[in-house]
Amino acid sequence: MFNVFDFYEKMEDGKIMLSFKGVITPDLLSSILQIMESKLDNLGEEPRQRKKVYNVLVECLQNLYHHGEVLTSTPALADKASLFLIGRNDNGLYRIITGNYILNKSIPELKSKIEQINAMNREQLKAYYLQTLNNEFYSEKGGGGLGIIDIARKSGQKFDYSFSKVDEEFSFFSLVITVNNV
């Protein structure tokens, strides 16, 4: 947890607009989105940028929320919180950071998915998105793994990520998303 925060503070011009640590619920998710929406409005962001950032936020938070639901089925992780931070530097570049516990055995699959996405250009991401949208069956929660591809398409930047080993069973996964200023 501290690693991520240190990292954040070290970010050049990093300015936190909102940070949260806790269990993500639908109500809480609505509140965060509402706060962020009014902050984006107050900043006088271009509508396109506002929508882009908002879209990425929705997907990040819903990923955390759905992941939290998966964790509740693992008793040791049931009350483990997620971490969420968003910052905007003076150039209008947004950084969104999420952190959550993950089972060590889930790491290889997630890591290879992120690496795969990071290696793609804009056109490849679009093709991958369409393929996933069209071919994949609904996951139980309706997400179907599209979220992370959509985030990559909207952000226009590579993901930064890390896994900090907690013990033999769990690690802490942090994901850093940069949203370009359009």
Binding site: K51, Y54, N55, V58, E59, Q62, L133, N134, Y138, K141, G142, G143, G144, L146, G147, I149, D150
Partner: peptide, 13 residues
């Protein structure tokens, strides 16, 4: 639609 999330995109399809 002003915004839609990826789980909605599946439903639209």
């Amino acid at each position: 639609l002003e915004y839609f999330n990826t789980s909605t995109s599946k439903c639209l399809l």
